[in-house]
Design a protein around this nucleic acid. Sequence first.
DNA 1: CATAGAAAAATTGGATCCAATATTCAATCC
DNA 2: GGATTGAATATTGGATCCAATTTTTCTATG
Lengths: 221, 221
Amino acid sequence: MKFAAVDVRQTASAADIVYESLRKAIIEGALAEGESLRQEEIAKMFNTSRIPVREALSRLEQHGLITTRRYKGAVVAGLSIGEIEEIFEFRALIEAEVMRLAVPNLDRETLERARRYCDAFDRETDPHRWGEINRAFHTSLYEACRRPYHLQQVRASLDRIDRYLRAQLTFTDGVPRAGREHEAILAACEKGDADLAARLTRDHVLDAGKSLTAFLRQHRR
Amino acid sequence: MKFAAVDVRQTASAADIVYESLRKAIIEGALAEGESLRQEEIAKMFNTSRIPVREALSRLEQHGLITTRRYKGAVVAGLSIGEIEEIFEFRALIEAEVMRLAVPNLDRETLERARRYCDAFDRETDPHRWGEINRAFHTSLYEACRRPYHLQQVRASLDRIDRYLRAQLTFTDGVPRAGREHEAILAACEKGDADLAARLTRDHVLDAGKSLTAFLRQHRR
DNA sequence: CATAGAAAAATTGGATCCAATATTCAATCC
DNA sequence: GGATTGAATATTGGATCCAATTTTTCTATG
């Protein structure tokens, strides 16, 4: 037999597709906070009935990306500044630990991949891609911690504030500063200094949080 | 107008009820790991159609309490020993921090409530209630951290391993040891020593994890 | 008797239909 | 004119029906 086998166990259901599309739209900010999501409208866009849409919405709600009220429908969840601060606090805690656990497992290939993301981040001029590359950089290092549950929580908490983080990168001096901090984190990883990498990651997340909340305090209301 | 108004905004939907019932059954161990959940059967039990059941199952899956495969149905999720270890590691990290943040906010009333749970735990002889009281003790202290997102993550990770924790309390020397550790944590809280309370909480969670995984290694296959 | 394959039953995913609730808007009253 | 009421419309939650897939049962065959 000379052909590539494809794992057909788990093909995507309609609900999967709708869920992933909406999730992406929300974390990228394509759907604005407070925007309401009508089942029928979404169903038409995906050429399906409301049933898979309802399942997708239910999943999004469990992850805190939308809020729903009975018979009133779903809206893209917004976070207060206090809630955003809390999630950054949480991220700082988890991501520092994940980074610490990752360092001993980092191999040359992974470090090179992270280096490429780090450089690409510095060179990128399109604001729409900053958020994506930033996330790819961190994730590439985090994955070496080999802790699926931890990584799932990192992903979930990132999802909640990604929109705002993208705004921070776009509208503040976030990009050059993040670039410098990435450089320092990567250097610590290359040295194999887990504690330093963890501390720098913690500060990096808290810095971004501080910068973002300062920005929001100026521009909200 | 002279009557008490009742907030009717958010009455429970059928899906809510099914979800909460199944969640409880799973974390208490009433539904065993690997047990399969048929939509029609559950629907009949709740006198409803399969639609709300499907929504409940979808939510449970998002929280990792069940696993589903397309056209094959849902089964209660089981965790490997490695996965259990990881979740205990995660809990130790979060709960220590939550405890640290809670200590400065603990008032006399909260400490008294925790004291009552602590005593009740020591006195309780019914194994089925150990898990519940243990959780109530910790939660009563954690809540003072005033961090809804952190508390949500604590709850979610506890849900994932509660069944096993209950087994550990029941089948090992977990109860007297947990009792002593609760006493020490509570004493640190009463003293207002946040760092100590955090460290003891961390050790308490890791101890329970060690004890549980040792138990499982002996009894699984 | 074991087994491969087909038919039947069971189960899930999705579409359509109905009921409950919310929203809009015109008609009415002051 | 502005507030209030009630009908019309829109929207969500749930029930029922159909299609896709899996699992079980049955049967023929060696």
